[in-house]
Amino acid sequence: MQKIIKITIIFLLIFILGIFFLSLNKSSNYNTEFLVGNKLGEIELVSFEDDSVYTNDDFKNNSFTLINFWASWCAPCRIEHPQLMELSKENNIKILGVNFKDKKINALKFLKDLGDPYEYLTRDSNGKQSVNFGIYGIPESILIDNKLTIIKKFVGPLTKHDLNNIIEIINNL
């Protein structure tokens, strides 16, 4: 009996310390990568220009769509913009821009200065729509396929590396 207790205690300690060692190599930063593989729910995005609404059906014919949340007041969005411009040249993918908590004039000026990569441009003036996409800070981008399954999520500005990654994915299928 005493022996069993002793062995249990030692195993428990090894287990706890082992987990600590394992966790040391993990990043403690949080991301929403677990959403990858899930389907998008009902989309209801209001067009930037008028009050027409985009829904899931609008994206079913694209082999890939990149949903990009951006705003003119967001500095990192400027950094990622060249990558989006580059990506807009690709045939296999369409970019859906969601203008987040922004003023219309500023947003238009932003696009005039840096170019407009968006096939569809919508707005999320009060930010409520972003919650449906699991967005918690902008810029954030979601790559979906024609079944509206999330292929990849990008939190923070898209880098050159991310861009190549996307191009590889869309041209491989």
């Binding site: 205690i9 030692i10 300690l13 310390l17 600590f20 060692f21 040391l24």
Partner: peptide, 16 residues
């Protein structure tokens, strides 16, 4: 982390 954890492990196992 690795240093403190190694130290902690040694301490625990020595005392047990």
């Amino acid at each position: 982390g690795i240093y403190i954890l190694s130290f902690l492990s040694l301490m625990i196992f020595a005392s047990v």
